[in-house]
Design a protein around this nucleic acid. Structure first.
Length: 350
DNA sequence: AAGACGGGGAG
DNA sequence: CTCCCAGTCTT
């Protein structure tokens, strides 16, 4: 897939723009400090990059501050139980990231003496670190001249080159073009391009008048930059239905259990539910009780939409031994994904 | 190559 | 409502 725009990306203009417009972020070393020799902490950069996978900056900030307060170094994180990490990750989504985060911390300590590898190739061998994250850490922390290609860059480059196919079908062509532009200040360039995508070349609005790549951008030249990137054909999202059962004992405690270690919401905490299937069957209550029906809870996952009928009752604890009874006050600290927090709120437990 | 895998904010 | 975000792993 050849690229239409013959102009190489002008990294000098991009860096000049970054020097005066860089976002201030909790995990970032400002370009002025970076140029005076301040080095980013690979632990903090790694943590931020993993949190930012498919997740917005706004959602990440509080989690990042919380994690770095609890665990200031990779040694602290490696020494903590996985359950603590899952508990703190609850609500951020994509929970395999939390498991890989913990596994990665332990690997860095056990196999690398507590220091992250200083190359993209070395980093990518670690759990949860793929092509993007390895390149990002290597560029930002070590100024390795690698192409850092994320969703922002996909959009910026698709517009710059007026790419007429979905990004997925031209990923390597974009990577090659970007690679040719990576300057000595590789870390600042990577962050500059991401800031550009986040603040100037945004998904629904391209502020071309203030873009440092304005002159050579093919999409701007054509006059309709938001036509790019070309979207792949989307598949419809199926609906699954089920029942959720919120049980309380005589003391008012709530019955919780752990989800299986693999699959959706792996290892996280839940209330018992029926199977989730195409059609809603009759509720098969897990215990005797005066069951009361609440409003339906709807939760949208990436690949399906879930509609859960919420039921609650006071029950006798007999036979319920797979999980545990949690006081209402302790719910906040449980590893409850947003779905089950919604269910509990619907049943009157907030 | 395609699908699994969360959640929230913007428009 | 739709879109999509500093992607990775599995099959």
């Amino acid at each position: 897939m050849p690229l239409a725009n013959p102009h190489p990306i002008d990294s000098t203009s991009v860096l000049a723009w970054y020097d005066s417009h860089a976002r201030e972020l909790p995990w970032r070393v400002a370009p002025s400090d970076r140029r005076q020799g301040v080095r980013p902490d690979p632990y903090r950069v790694w943590l931020s990059e993993v949190m930012l996978q498919q997740t917005t900056v706004a959602a990440v900030k509080a989690y990042f501050v919380r994690f770095t307060t609890l665990w200031p170094t990779v040694l602290d994180l490696a020494a903590t139980p996985l359950e603590s990490v899952l508990r703190e990750w609850a609500g951020l989504g994509y929970y395999a990231r939390a498991r890989n985060l913990h596994a990665c911390a332990k690997a860095v300590v056990a196999e690398h003496g507590g220091a992250f590898p200083d190359s993209a190739a070395g980093l990518q061998s670690l759990p949860g670190i793929g092509p993007y994250t390895s390149a990002a850490i290597a560029a930002i922390c070590f100024d390795e001249r690698v192409a850092v290609l994320d969703g922002n860059l996909d959009r910026v480059l698709a517009r710059y080159y007026a790419l007429e196919v979905p990004v997925r079908d031209a990923k390597e062509a974009l990577r090659g073009a970007l690679q040719l532009a990576v300057p000595e200040r590789a870390g600042d360039f990577a962050q500059a391009m991401m800031d550009l995508g986040a603040t100037i070349c945004a998904p629904r609005a391209a502020m071309c008048l203030v873009c440092p790549l304005h002159n050579d951008c093919e999409a701007r030249r054509q006059g309709e930059p938001t036509r790019y990137p070309i979207k792949p054909v989307k598949t419809e999202r199926p609906v699954r239905k089920g029942h959720a059962f919120v049980m309380r004992d005589a003391a008012g405690d709530v019955y919780l259990q752990s989800r299986p270690p693999k699959g959706l919401l792996a290892g996280m905490t839940e209330v018992p539910t029926s199977d989730w299937s195409d059609d809603l069957g009759e509720p098969n209550f897990p215990a005797e009780g005066d069951w009361r029906r609440h409003e339906q809870v709807v939760h949208v996952f990436t690949h399906f939409r879930l509609e859960l009928e919420v039921w609650s009752a006071q029950v006798a604890p007999d036979g319920l031994d797979a999980g545990w009874w949690a006081p209402t006050k302790a719910l906040k600290g449980e590893a409850l994904p947003t779905l089950f927090r919604k269910v509990l709120a619907e049943a009157g437990f907030s």
